[in-house]
Structure formats: structure tokens, C-alpha cells
Simulated assay, not measured.
Amino acid sequence: MMQRRDKTQARHALANLILGLVGTLRLAAGHHMTEEWLAAQLSVSRTPIRAALSLLAQRGVVVARPRQGFFLAVSWDRITRQHALEIPSTPEEAFYSALLRDRLAGDLANSFTQTELARRYKVNRTVMLRALTRMGDEGLVMRNKGQGWHFLPTLDSECALHNSYDFRRMVEPAALRLPGFRADPAVLARLRADHEYALASEAGMNERALFELDSGFHETLVGFGGNPYCMQSVQQQNRLRRLLEYQGYANRRRVRDWVQEHLAIIAALEAGEPARAAELMRAHLDNAVAATPSPAEAGPPAAPDAGRAIASPLVRR
């Protein structure tokens, strides 16, 4: 069962990688998505590529033609988050969520060993190492020089949260006013489509998808400024606040609020008004400070329901 579930997750993840490749290379509708070419691009064999393309065919992203193969049915600039596949839950995901949930609740020490985790969570070594490696890649934990692991600094206090927003209010609006700022209309169109999908989606978006939508928006807009130092600072802030996505706020209105504020900023940039967008960005971050409770006030997050999109709002971003 574990093996089948891992393969299923891998197929879904590979399908999302193909979507990313389409966007990176800006492929037009009708492009021949050959298995050989994709296998070479993504360094995998043709069999999982075929399975991933079949999943994308079910989503309407590609179309299968008899004896010809798969062809892109949607141009790169029309692909949005609604086309992405929800990756099925795994034991690794359950352990990952439990670890973060207990950390936020104050039930897990800053430094810990794998032996302690195995005893507490009854999890096998393979699952544990996969989850810890992922958390390390996301900037949440780091191996100790000796034995064990430790959590990296994050925005887990009210003071840290407000300091973070003070810093972002200095950097992000200023990035939109840089002389070299250039907004890509096609990228803005994709951002708009992603945010409109978030508003219209009846099933809701899970916590990770909401965080990626939010963090991707801020990183993309700062990236238009062309200053790598600004980009690096915003990416670091996103790494620090990643942990907050697992605090399940019950008020759906907060999600709608920050999504609509993002859309207003996008509209200003589409109209060629970066100065206006900078003003809206500053107001957006001001609103975020006013709406953001401390982690202690928010309480620990609820455990995710495996295999289902979670309608769990975040604070305004």
C-alpha cells in the first residue's frame, strides 16, 4: 500500500513539474509533448512521464491523439493553479503536519533527536528522514553539528511578526518604485487568473496552495524590480513565515480580503501605474498587521484531512 501511494504521489508531482516546464519554456498550444523529450528534460524514464501526461489529459491541459502522442491543449499563459494537481497525502505528510502542529502548540522542544521523534510519533525511519529533509529544504529545521536537529528561527512571536511586517513595508513598496521595475504582462495575467480561481473555487484551497499563491505573488512583484537583494530579502521573509500556514484560521473573509487586495495591485500594474501599485502594497501590508493575531492568540492548527483540499484561511498577507 505504501509503495502504491508513493507512486501515485510521484505521478501527481511529475505532472506539476511538466506544468512548470510548460510555463518556463512558454510553450504554445499544439506543442508536441513527446515522452522522449520530457523524459530528457526532467531526468526520468518514459513510463512515469506517460502516466503524468495521462493525468494532465484528464485536466484538459494536454490532449492524446491516436498514434501521435500528447499535444499541449492550453498555452503556457493560460495555465493557472486550477490546472495543478493536488498531491495525495502520505504518511510523510501526516508526520510533517503533526511535527509542525506540536511545535506551534509548544509541545516540542527547539532541539530534538530522531530517536525522540520515533518514540513520540511511532514513525519509521524512512518516513521521518523524508519529512525532515523536506523541512530542511524549506528552511524550517537544520541538523545539529553533533546529534539531532533543531528548529530554525521563525515568526513564532508577536514581536517577530510585527518586526517582519515593518521590514516588508520598507522593502516591498520600494521595490515597485525602482527605476528598473518592469512588469511582465503575461505573468501578471497568470497571477490574476490564479487569484480569481482562489476566489471562485468552491472546494477551497489547502493551506500549502494558499501560502504558495501568497508568497509567489510577493516574490514575483519584487522580482519585477530587478534588484536581487530585494528579492533575497522577501524570499527569506517567506521562509520565516512558512510555519504560519499551518495555523488554521477559521475566518474565510480574511482570505478573500488579501486576495482582493492582491488583485487591486495587479490591476494597477496592468494599467501601467507602479506608483499606485506601491501605495496599494503599503496599504495591503498595513492591513495585514492590523489583521494578524499572534501565534499564541491563533492557537495550534487543526490536523489536515488527508486527500481533501482544506478550506483553511490564512491571515491577510
Rank of each mutant, 00 (worst) to 15 (best):
T126F: 04
R253S: 09
E273A: 15
G307K: 04
M2V: 01
V315L: 11
I266A: 03
A94F: 03
E92C: 02
G180K: 00
A275T: 05
R256K: 09
E270Y: 10
R67I: 02
T220Y: 08
Y246E: 06
A98E: 15
R103N: 13
T47R: 09
A275Y: 05
D102Q: 13
T8F: 00
A15I: 02
R143E: 04
A271R: 12
P179Y: 07
G299H: 10
E273M: 09
A193E: 12
A277V: 11
A40S: 15
G223H: 04
E261Y: 05
H218F: 14
N144G: 11
L17T: 13
A250N: 07
T24V: 14
K122M: 01
G146M: 00
A278N: 07
G20S: 01
A200W: 03
R316I: 00
F224C: 04
G226L: 00
A98Y: 07
R177C: 15
M33A: 14
A271C: 04
A39S: 15
F112D: 03
M170C: 12
Q68S: 08
S201D: 12
A13G: 06
Q147M: 09
W258N: 02
Q232N: 09
W76H: 06
W149F: 15
L188Q: 04
Y249Q: 08
E36W: 03
Y165F: 15
S89F: 02
E116Y: 11
E212C: 07
M1Y: 04
A291D: 14
Q68C: 04
R182H: 15
C159A: 13
G299W: 10
A267P: 13
A84P: 02
G225H: 03
A193V: 06
N227Q: 11
V61N: 03
Q232D: 12
V222D: 02
E261T: 00
A298D: 09
H284E: 00
Q236W: 13
S75K: 01
A311W: 08
R276V: 12
L280D: 06
R67G: 08
A160H: 07
I265T: 06
R103A: 08
G23C: 02
A186P: 03
L108I: 10
R67T: 11
R120F: 14
F211Y: 14
T126R: 04
N144H: 10
R317P: 01
L243P: 09
Q237W: 10
A267S: 10
G69T: 05
S43A: 13
R177L: 11
D137M: 00
R208N: 02
E196H: 11
A186E: 15
R78K: 08
M135P: 06
A131P: 12
P313I: 04
A15E: 01
P295N: 11
R5G: 00
T154G: 09
L100D: 04
K122D: 15
V289T: 10
M231G: 09
P313Y: 07
G299K: 13
G216Y: 08
R103V: 03
A40G: 15
L17F: 12
L210S: 05
R169F: 09
